[in-house]
Amino acid sequence: MECEQAQFSNSTDDEDQEKSARRFVGWAMGLPFVAFVARETFGGRTTLLTELPTPLQWVACLAGLALGGVVAQILAQRSAKTFGRSKAIFAAISLIALSVVTFSYLGRWAFELASFANLETEIQSAQVRIMGVRTGKSGTFAAARLFPDGREVDVPITNELYADLAATRPPLWSKTYSEELFCLTLPQQNGRWGAIRAYVPARWDDGLSHFEDCHRQIKG
């Protein structure tokens, strides 16, 4: 009887540890998604057209790596027995990668907020060159750049505009930045430290429905 009770107690402890490990993995995996949703909800109508300065990129990546490493170590301690060694290692690596990506994403957002906080600058229209288009469950988008070494950003567009632009390939998308002929016009604002941002439709808004021949009349 005592042996059976001991086995039942060990089994219960293992189940509790497994549930605890699964909850921990769920929270750790869910936090990056929550951060992304928060960014898209509160700041989804603007996007940086310039890259995050290199020193800040390193800071964000190292911070993400450090936090991811700590979380991964805790995960390994909690789940090695319940998940198995290979699954625990895979989950730990995934957490570290997610942490680095999330901190880079949030670092860029923080830089944008700091660059434009309490700053009143004129908003002007600017053309961004269309480098490609894509579609998926999250919508239809045009990949656009303000200048050759700038960030390539996703701009929501309508299904009709996607179809028009997609019909121009393959010759359009095989060209370099300077050779691209089609543009989108976006409201643009200059901030501190060389930061430039554009105002774009949020993911739940209607996308842009017109494109232009660069420096020419609007088509659409």
Rank of each mutant, 00 (worst) to 15 (best):
S9L: 14
G220N: 08
A97S: 12
F33W: 10
M131V: 03
T176V: 08
F90L: 15
L165Y: 02
W173Y: 15
R197G: 00
T46C: 09
T176M: 06
D164R: 15
G194L: 04
T82G: 03
I196A: 06
T176G: 15
A91I: 06
D206N: 08
G150H: 02
L165S: 04
V25S: 05
V25K: 01
T102S: 11
V155P: 04
L184K: 02
Q17T: 08
F42Y: 13
G207I: 01
T102A: 02
V34A: 12
A143H: 14
R169W: 13
P32T: 02
F111I: 04
A72P: 10
L186I: 08
A126G: 07
A142C: 02
G194P: 03
A38F: 11
R192M: 07
V37Q: 05
G68N: 04
L98A: 08
P170G: 06
F42T: 07
Q5M: 10
F83C: 00
N159K: 15
A97G: 12
T135W: 10
D213N: 15
G68K: 07
T46D: 10
I157N: 01
T54C: 00
R192T: 08
R169G: 15
W173I: 10
Q188K: 11
R216Q: 15
D205P: 09
P148S: 10
D14C: 11
R216P: 02
A163C: 00
T46L: 07
E212L: 12
S79D: 00
K219V: 15
Y199D: 12
D206A: 10
D206E: 13
G139S: 06
A195K: 05
E18N: 11
Y177W: 09
A110R: 01
A21H: 04
E152V: 10
K19A: 08
L161R: 12
G136D: 01
F111D: 11
E122H: 08
R85H: 13
D206S: 09
